[in-house]
Design a binder for these strands. Sequence first.
DNA 1: ATGTGTGTACTATGCCACATAGTACGCATA
DNA 2: TATGCGTACTATGTGGCATAGTACACACAT
Lengths: 127, 127
Amino acid sequence: MISIDYQDRRPIYEQIVERYQTLIVRGILPPDTQMPSVRQTALELKINPNTISKAYGILEREGFIYSVKGRGSFVSGNQNVRDRKKQIWLEKLEGLLFEGRDLGVDSASVAACVDRVFGIKRKEEQS
Amino acid sequence: MISIDYQDRRPIYEQIVERYQTLIVRGILPPDTQMPSVRQTALELKINPNTISKAYGILEREGFIYSVKGRGSFVSGNQNVRDRKKQIWLEKLEGLLFEGRDLGVDSASVAACVDRVFGIKRKEEQS
DNA sequence: ATGTGTGTACTATGCCACATAGTACGCATA
DNA sequence: TATGCGTACTATGTGGCATAGTACACACAT
């Protein structure tokens, strides 16, 4: 379900947060699904329970999951989370696009890339 | 010319590398322009010369600048650098777009974002 | 009541990247 | 010669990250 990339420069707890965010937003983990227990995940990934706990704490603060003492952690049904996640992604995209524009990347290359991924026909080529 | 953002999680030397990469690729720093000296920049930014030196070392290894002992560091005229930088950026963009698609972002939002940044018409660009 | 599994909190420790401080050397140029 | 340049080296301090270990409160099945 979850894996760690030790080549990734980001800390482990952050990778876990990001991974679960995606799984939840995409609906692979439906609302009220029980999350793997802190200790269980720690055993499987061969890392310290504290690290998982830290990730879960962040996920809870962000509204992705909710925790119940003695029972476990569960996926939140909060719909706003998904929208907020999309919003953040769009801001990230905008930042990257600005960077590319400053680099001098031509818009045609960008449009081609967008078409390739989203497989759409853009309204019309700007004339 | 150069500034540091201490809010940025990236290390200082990496920010400097990125900043100069942009300035060089955009042509703001033309080939054979002399780079600010290590000690001078260190004084202005109130950081250690070693940190600047580290950044310059990376920039040289990547082909953005070349250093001459006793004289200084200068902007490289290597054209391949610019193209390679664009190439890397496009790959980064593609990765982000896939992520957004998986998140369920609708293509219209993406198209709007692209248009907003790159503009509808793009006849002339800075040269 | 007991045992097991859960989240949570806390302290202590080690590691490592980063940045700094200080010094020194070789080289180019005025 | 004096100055400024890049470069190299050692030593030190700091902070984030991860670990180790322990402990507590709670839910649930037995």
